[in-house]
Nucleic acid binder design. Structure first.
Lengths: 194, 194
DNA sequence: ATAATATCCGGAGGGTAAATCCGGTTCAAA
DNA sequence: TTTGAACCGGATTTACCCTCCGGATATTAT
């Protein structure tokens, strides 16, 4: 309707964007979310100006790279949805989110910042909201099944998952400690009956 | 014995050190632990070289500023030790640590780093070890009283307290969410009986 | 009071990285 | 092939970290 006669997007734009995403993913994996953007640009074979034109902020780049990864998470969610027991589904969903949050070292920090403020301009806010909502669905199901306290919300467990991911990264826990931490939280949200 | 004939410490050294600590505390309060050290030096009326001579790393400065604050924590611990019920003492101790960890924005990060590695050269390691040990004492007491699971350790709850502090800072929680998060952890470590 | 010297000061300077700006270039459409 | 909008890339500015060393200063000895 209001669509202008649109030009076909230039080939170099798509090429550069893809190269930037690829380089960014490599650098985020190797050096965490604080990786040098200059280095990313150089590695992608473009100048810093090109990087900043495509992705005005670090968060924008991060969100774009993360979208690549979220396919994996959605796949996992699809698997989980085949589980009958809501409590087990919730547990596995929390684990899946922890893994996702651990994609890059330092990721929990900007995720928290995005989950908090309703800065519509923060590119990470939307993915966060989706995850919170998904968690809430699992929580409600488990509550109706009587396995989770009524006072607990999806937002609470989303926060808990981010916290666990942060702790894992910050303290690089041994397996035992990590298990105890998970148990701690799990026995925190479970309905104590039975 | 092996003491050389020591010179009296120079007056300007103490003056500069005090000015640096004061300025650093103000800047850490205002801008978090990542505050510009250049700005701290300027604010203290000294050059950057002087700052780095007194405190070779950011952690060293942070540890020194924190020592100022730890008197407050020790006072609180003394109060808590007058409580009879070990479970309540543990709860209050965890709250006290959370407050301490929230002294400056961004403090949990370097604390975790120090709690992890036994870098004897990290100036924050010693304070962390002390706190872990203190927490362990409270945990053991509460366990003997039968109010805390046997599997839980002082280190676990130290980690949990740092995580909560981080979450508070990163997500600036409303009071309700914060309360739910605390309840979550509390019902996680408590002995389920009764 | 004055000289001697160990100690300390402070800023200049090199290095890294963020973010912006603009003259030149490239691509799609006519 | 021409055109011009869109795009590129790097030079630049700014901010911060951290080190180094000539000059200044406080303490001690005379």
């Amino acid at each position: 309707m209001g669509d202008k006669q649109e030009r076909k997007p230039r080939a170099d734009v798509q090429r550069n964007r893809a190269a930037l995403l690829d380089a960014a993913q490599r650098h985020f994996l190797a050096h965490g979310v604080g990786a040098s953007l200059e280095a990313v640009a150089k590695d992608a074979g473009v100048g810093p100006g090109t990087l900043y034109r495509h992705f005005p902020t670090r968060e924008a780049l991060l969100a774009a790279v993360l979208q690549t990864r979220s396919a994996e998470l959605e796949q996992r969610r699809a698997d989980i949805d085949h589980i009958d027991a809501p409590a087990e589904a919730l547990r596995q969903w929390l684990r899946a989110m922890e893994d996702y949050f651990s994609s890059f070292s330092g990721l929990p920090e900007p995720l928290m910042a995005a989950a908090r403020a309703q800065d519509a301009d923060n590119p990470l806010t939307i993915p966060c909201d989706i995850l919170v909502k998904a968690t809430d669905d699992y929580v409600r199901a488990a509550q109706q099944d009587g396995h989770v306290r009524d006072a607990v919300t999806g937002y609470d467990l989303f926060l808990a998952a981010v916290s666990v991911a942060w702790t894992m990264g910050a303290a690089d826990l041994d397996t035992e400690s990590l298990g105890r931490l998970r148990t701690l939280i799990e026995s925190g949200y479970r309905e104590p009956t039975e």
